[in-house]
Design a protein around this nucleic acid. Structure first.
Lengths: 346, 346
DNA sequence: CTGAAAGCGCTTACAG
DNA sequence: CTGAAAGCGCTTACAG
């Protein structure tokens, strides 16, 4: 009585189920872990007993033997962001398919905070982890390496990545949208990108955009290069600034959120898109297709990345993790919608 | 050697740390759980040893004694949705403040799937759980009740809730936005709401909207009542339908996503908002303030609900869970922006 | 196919 | 303030 009081409020354990089914605890354990090894009538009795008692397994106790805990970690910069939430949802449900559970945390673009999160997840004995991008604190990477669990980098594809990666070619994405505008005849183009510090995705996109200018022997002037936070309101404000001072004929936005702000900026100023200003984004977020005008952008398959990452991590667990690092590039689709047009020569 | 091979790849445990620090395992355990009970010089030695070895605690082993696992569950209809992702982010980071970890899963508006998720979380020994809304499967509720962990319902405030709840008064929200339109003189008003089956938030909002009509002895005609999925594209399509057939002078949208679609529908048809059509939403999602025109809506404090829920669950754990059910209502703010105007009498 | 027994990594009375 | 020992709920060789 006194002994039970500290344990879980009399919740039935494997012992109680065994007693009720008239078998040993070992057999109950087998029923849950390797059912086919238990004879059918025994199975029935255990099933009945477990259900009568409302027995719920304690996976934490199980994980002390199992080598695997059944949980997999995912660390993102922020959960509250159109593109990551799509990724998270896909990752999580694909994990569910594999009978794994997701442990997720956000570091708010603070790589130092990521260290604490990695430790906390490791304390929970995650079987593997997916990190966004390749910029991470050494301490975190060392903890991960020492624990010897599978780690993959997602979102950006980089063939030289030191971690296995699954993602899109952000460099190519930046090139594609920029080239589209140059092909339409635009030359006075503003580039509005997210801060590239600790953000390889933004960095690659910007590099891609600039590479196109270079190839065409053009050089965007300093006043055409802008950094913008990931926020529609901020992007709109900055957009109004740029449209009234620099007066570009087109804007390359580092992500769709910035594009939304830019389009609203044009509307606020009474400028028409695409007649007066052409705008392209990167990402193809929810809503981009349906706004007026529809946003010309390049689709990054967040869902696909999430579910591939889940598959890969589970596979690495099950295969005993081959040491060869393999990368996977996901395809992007250029979506030519209404927000861009050929430069009007007045 | 052979014995170690099945355990975690030689990862150091409390025993190794104890040996290196020249103390007993019990003292190492105390160092991590109740540091102040360990003498300072001993503390230093343990700290050093732990750091030398790269020791990482195994919380799963710890949780077998601790009564609490340090993880708290959150089940949402979907992660990939502006309003829930804001909630999740807040819930998660507030949990981090309390040194707890979040276990999250989405049931995709399928209450049957919620049952499996509840079981899976329970198997992970969550210390408490927050569920969105009050519509849940009995089986899930029974499992929860039997385990005797704190359960709270979030998002909708309902003073008669059988679960402690933290949320906004969705009925009042529906009333406020609808009344705003009636006060502006509109009478031919379309109501476009999310499906109310298994969704108490949408149900309450719609009830609120209808109650205003009733009070004013008005009755919205059947053709003015529409159900719409949570999707900008679908809302836009339906909006175009409604605007060209029913031709309302105003639309009450059950959430901001539907409003966005409705505004784009107007723009696609060349109608002006608010001159030709007034539109109100509910939620004040990211972007609603900055689109053109700014959306008139009512702000539901998702962040506040998330962080209050985290606080409450932790408090319930720590206080031994008082049996009295307490509810908490969070304030909403009506945001009168540009998408509504007085009815033009031609 | 099933049981008895040892053990997973840590925590907690119980002594000292 | 610290240690030796029992035990948390389950799993897994080892026998049968």
């Amino acid at each position: 009585m006194a002994k039970r009081s500290r344990s879980r409020k009399g919740a039935p354990g494997i012992i109680e189920v065994a007693a009720r089914a008239g078998v040993s605890p070992a057999t109950v354990s087998r029923f849950f872990n390797t059912p086919d090894v238990v004879k059918s009538p025994t199975r029935k009795r255990i099933e009945q007993a477990a259900s009568d008692l409302g027995y719920i397994r304690d996976r934490m106790a199980g994980s002390m033997h199992n080598r695997f805990s059944g949980t997999i970690g995912l660390i993102v910069p922020t959960i509250d962001n159109a593109i990551f939430s799509e990724l998270i949802e896909a990752f999580s449900s694909q994990l569910l398919v594999h009978d794994r559970t997701m442990l997720i945390a956000a570091h708010g673009y603070d790589l130092k905070r990521e260290v604490g999160i990695v430790r906390s997840l490791l304390e929970r004995r995650i079987d593997g982890i997916a990190l966004v991008g390749q910029d991470h604190d050494t301490i975190a990477m060392n903890m991960l390496a020492q624990r010897n669990i599978p780690v993959i980098s997602i979102w950006n594809y980089d063939q030289d990545s030191y971690l296995p990666c699954i993602g899109a070619d952000n460099f190519a994405a930046g090139r594609t949208v920029t080239k589209h505008l140059l092909d339409l005849g635009h030359r006075n183009i503003s580039l509005v990108f997210a801060d590239t510090v600790g953000n390889d995705r933004a960095r690659e996109r910007l590099r891609g955009a600039l590479s196109v200018f270079e190839e065409m022997q053009l050089q965007p002037s300093g006043q055409n290069l802008h950094t913008c936070p990931y926020d529609v309101g901020e992007a709109k404000k900055l957009g109004i600034d740029i449209l009234t001072s620099v007066k570009p004929s087109a804007i390359v936005c580092g992500n769709d959120i910035i594009s939304h702000g830019a389009i609203y900026a044009c509307q606020a100023l009474g400028m028409r898109v695409p007649e007066d200003v052409s705008i392209v984004g990167i990402g193809d977020f929810r809503g981009s297709a349906h706004m007026e005008p529809g946003l010309t952008t390049i689709r990054l398959p967040a869902k696909r990345i999430g579910s591939l990452a889940a598959d890969k991590l589970v596979a690495m667990n099950e295969s005993g993790m081959p040491s060869k690092v393999t990368h996977q590039k996901v395809e992007m689709n250029f979506m030519d919608r209404g927000s861009t047009a050929a430069l009007q020569t007045p």
